[in-house]
Design a protein around this nucleic acid. Structure first.
Lengths: 134, 134
DNA sequence: AGTACATATTCGTTTAAGCGAATATAATTC
DNA sequence: GAATTATATTCGCTTAAACGAATATGTACT
């Protein structure tokens, strides 16, 4: 019954997940580590908007960031709480099969693999996992 | 892959769950059917507040209501979507073990079983499951 | 019909979040 | 060290949502 464990703030988690842009970001990051510029391009939206939502996710403990020179890489952090983690994992399964999310991922993949990437992305570090595949 | 199934609105579900009062309500209702007046008493808060949050949950498809005379009974409706249902069920497990939620349930149980219920509850139909236990 | 009671809704206000535009910060390059 | 690039933050505004207080609706009872 874990009587001593500090109770997890489930409401905070749900608030973090209750926004389309943030769900799309989590979907794109997946279990990879993705540079902000790729997220901006893949979602075709403004950089400040992406940055603000990433900050929100970070405050909620859902993602962490790593700096690499001028680039910032974001990765998902699974919740420490057992129940929250299961919820999160189930959400990931949903993201995988949702059609809009699939389209987002396809767009990201295309950005990563195209021989002529948009100007914004030239020289930018590609997502780790995808980069590893080549 | 269910290509034809209309994609579930996961964001809507999370918004419904991203509020403490609504989580507490879902916790109290559980898999029972509970009269509004019991919810008001158990959460020690105003009746309009409870009513508004129940309306919110109903719009989000998370609960349904049944009228019985002047009383309204609310019950939880598990999401049709497989992933959403699993998330919901996992949330229920979390509710069961969370200490604050346990206290809420204890307060409701006490209201149901006390020989001298508060004036507001005299004559009100008790939660089905608890009523059935006696 | 009229009163009483349970619940729902509206009103006015406050607060949290979202956004685009502009600006600030931090690292890199020249 | 000045310019460039990537990202973060701030500003002003708009919208959603929460709240208490007041009011409306619906049902029951006399």
């Amino acid at each position: 019954m874990k009587r001593n464990a500090k109770d997890f703030d489930m409401e905070l988690l749900f608030r973090a997940l209750a926004d389309e842009t943030r769900l799309r970001l989590l979907n794109l990051i997946g279990n990879d580590e993705v540079c902000v510029c790729y997220l901006v391009e893949a979602l075709r939206t403004s950089q400040p908007k992406i940055s603000r939502h990433l900050a929100y996710l970070r405050r909620a403990g859902v993602v962490e960031a790593r700096r690499e020179g001028k680039w910032m890489h974001y990765r998902v952090v699974e919740p420490a709480d057992t129940y929250a983690r299961k919820i999160f994992q189930e959400l990931c399964l949903w993201l995988m099969q949702d059609q809009k999310m699939q389209r987002d991922r396809a767009r990201l993949a295309k950005l990563c693999c195209t021989p002529q990437p948009p100007v914004q992305l030239q020289g930018a570090p590609r997502p780790l996992r995808i980069a590893a595949e080549r």
